[in-house]
Design a protein around this nucleic acid. Structure first.
Length: 233
DNA sequence: GCGACAG
DNA sequence: ATCTTGTCGC
């Protein structure tokens, strides 16, 4: 297994953005993963999965709600991304283990979290220019950064998930924010999951690629990959 | 005790 | 997260 040393340059070639969209009334949801070329930001691969929320949203338990559909979607990818950009928090969590942390451990991939709203910790507003940031702290420790990705816009909250430093996470987020407040990878995943959920009313299991000898069910396919040691190892 | 609280 | 039009500003 290839593992980077703490001070080794981190040059991801592919970056995955992840997101889940929910249907208003029911617990029906759609997860999407969009993989971009880290240099050109062009789409390299994308995958989706339908799901049903197992329980109502509870602050602090987001990972347990979104991990299943996100893992199902990840299992549909044809590539293993170099880093996962999650919609939410990593270490900046009441128990220091948010969605990005979970996804990192389960996939054994570098991960980071980008949140649109504050959760836990205190901070001062960062400067108005793109790239300005302030520390998100709690109990004398640094949990993440409040980062301005565009001049004058509301900052985002960046935190480490797994196998990445806060410096690299910050750099990567800025590199992914070329035109909007949020990283391009997350915006793409958001759009895809929305489109998927809107454009389907009945059968929640109409996904899959026919003709391939692999399992059509996302969960089974992911399990098969793990058995073969080909995914996230 | 009360309020706040990622998506 | 989602319900939702127009509107102000760069």
């Amino acid at each position: 297994m290839v593992r980077l040393a703490a001070d080794e340059p981190f040059e991801p070639r592919t970056v995955a953005g992840l997101d889940v969209t929910y249907e208003p009334g029911s617990g029906r949801c759609a997860a999407a993963v969009v993989v971009l070329d880290a240099g050109t930001l062009e789409v390299v691969d994308e995958s989706t999965a339908f799901g049903t929320a197992a329980f109502a949203y509870v602050p602090g338990l987001l990972a347990f709600r979104e991990l299943p559909p996100l893992m199902a979607a990840l299992g549909e990818l044809t590539v293993v991304p170099d880093v996962l950009v999650c919609d939410g928090y990593g270490i900046a969590h009441p128990r220091r283990f948010g969605l990005a942390s979970h996804l990192g451990v389960v996939t054994d991939r570098p991960t980071l979290g980008v949140a649109k709203n504050p959760f836990t910790g205190v901070y001062e507003p960062p400067g108005d220019d793109r790239g300005c940031w302030s520390e998100l702290r709690e109990d004398g420790e640094t949990l993440g950064r409040v980062l301005r990705t565009r001049r004058g816009v509301k900052p985002v909250f960046v935190s480490v998930g797994h196998r990445i430093t806060l410096d690299r996470a910050t750099d990567l987020v800025l590199a992914l924010c070329t035109r909007y407040r949020l990283p391009e990878a997350i915006r793409r995943a958001d759009r895809l999951s929305r489109r998927l959920l809107r454009g389907s009313s009945g059968s929640p299991a109409a996904e899959g690629e026919p003709g391939t000898g692999r399992p059509v069910d996302p969960v089974e396919r992911q399990q098969a990959r793990l058995r073969d040691g080909r995914a996230y190892r």
